[in-house]
Design a protein around this nucleic acid. Structure first.
Lengths: 251, 251
DNA sequence: CGAAGGATTGACGCTTCTCAAATAGGGTGG
DNA sequence: CCACCCTATTTGAGAAGCGTCAATCCTTCG
């Protein structure tokens, strides 16, 4: 297991960055997130053009990348850490519509304003580009446009799968689907960890699954009593992946 | 009001097609859905190239456009009628993830298989293109790729707004958000109708909102008793749009 | 006109939300 | 290194809303 743990600092790409706050010149060729992101197909000259487009920026926990309805000035390429994508409702509720991981492209919008808000769940690194200059960069290279298209379609599929989760009627099924889905996303960053890291808080999980923190807590406890999972400080140990998948898909 | 009603057959673009079953040669220049679709930016020569790519096909109520996990051989441009996009769960439940309207582009996928199923809610017309030939057409014209990108981002926003709905805890709020959202989508097809057409069945609404048909029925009834809406055969009359929006957004 | 499917209505039980309190954990400063 | 505070999490008891099952009514189409 490589993802959670002190050894979080070695794996590729990192869920937790090691650099302190500030902007950094980037070396795209060495970027651990590149194979997972929209930059994967670019050649060396294109990468060095991209490097000049904007800095790689450090975000501390809770730092805001952008807010819903703000003018959309930048787009972001997440390289390290975990982001939270959410919408706020007038009644004060917050619906988390997804978590961003290294390789994810954030800030795309079809109007001139952001359609959602994003902030940092963990310390984070992201390449920040001004929207216009990134637009110019892309316009000159249809290849990256195709790749962005594929990314949007994948995001759309993730979003629709999350609808299935939100429409589930049992709390156990929601938690099970969440754990499975989260594990499957993390698999891309290394082998399947025996302990599944959950860097987000209970509040985040609740706002993601459309339930209360109390029910999240009780449900995780119930699964533990059933010996399906074991709760550990910042994650869960999946004792019986088979039974979790049964819960997630069966009625 | 132009959308629902016998006069459904005149408006542009049509929610209900008048042609009988079969394939038709297309005249993109006269297409009522074109301004709303990805073809909007194309010039006359490009349109006539597109016309040669595949026929405009008629679909009867309940006809399948494509099914989840099938090989993705075609993409579709919906020109008339309403489609249902859904995923089936192992337990037999069906989650409707969206409704397709004229101008919508259906069948995009990032793998070689469809990520969801689509069939016709009403009689429908759609341009059907083979995936490869459409791919070639697009590759030669980066403009349409940009437009497709914008469409995907808009779909993503729709999907995320639907997450807000699904995570709502009250049935009244779900129904209210659904009616508002559906009305706002139909506004693009003409002026705001005084009667909001609901061409889909109660079962469809229930599967879209993540509730049971009984609760859908009861909730619509309750809103009627509160004089906020009036139920009519295949739609609802919005008696107090203001109070519906209050329900949709306030707690 | 009749049958079949869709929609409505009713009664009841269960799950989750709500409110409230206790406990654990993380970070700071002495 | 420890004590303290603030926040996150867990746990409990009670209530309300929605799902379930079942019966009736309505619509549509042959």
């Amino acid at each position: 297991m490589r993802i959670m743990h002190p050894s979080w600092r070695q794996p590729t790409p990192r869920l937790l960055p090691s650099e302190p706050a500030g902007d950094y010149p980037r070396r795209c060729l060495e970027c651990e997130a590149r194979p997972l992101g929209i930059c994967a197909g670019l050649d060396a000259p294109e990468l060095s053009a991209l490097e000049k487009l904007g800095p790689e920026t450090h975000f501390a926990r809770k730092d805001t990348l952008f807010s819903e309805d703000d003018r959309a000035r930048h787009v972001f390429n997440l390289t390290q850490g975990v982001a939270r994508l959410y919408k706020l409702l007038p009644d004060g509720r917050r619906q988390i519509v997804g978590f961003g991981l290294p390789g994810d492209f954030l800030g795309a919008t079809c109007s001139d304003r952001y359609g959602l808000s994003a902030d940092a769940v963990t310390p984070m690194m992201a390449c920040r580009f001004s929207r216009e200059s990134f637009q110019r960069f892309v316009d000159a290279r249809p290849g990256i446009l195709r790749r962005m298209n594929a990314f949007e379609v994948r995001e759309l599929d993730l979003a629709r799968n999350h609808m299935l989760l939100l429409a589930s009627h049992s709390a156990e099924q929601k938690i099970a689907m969440f754990l499975i889905g989260w594990r499957d996303r993390l698999v891309r960053f290394g082998e399947v960890p025996e302990i599944l890291p959950l860097p987000m808080r209970r509040r985040d999980i609740a706002d993601f699954l459309g339930m209360t923190i109390e029910t999240v807590s009780r449900t995780l406890r119930r699964l533990e009593r059933k010996k399906i999972i074991a709760n550990v400080p910042r994650g869960v140990r999946l004792l019986s992946p088979v039974r979790i998948e049964d819960l997630a898909w069966a009625r």
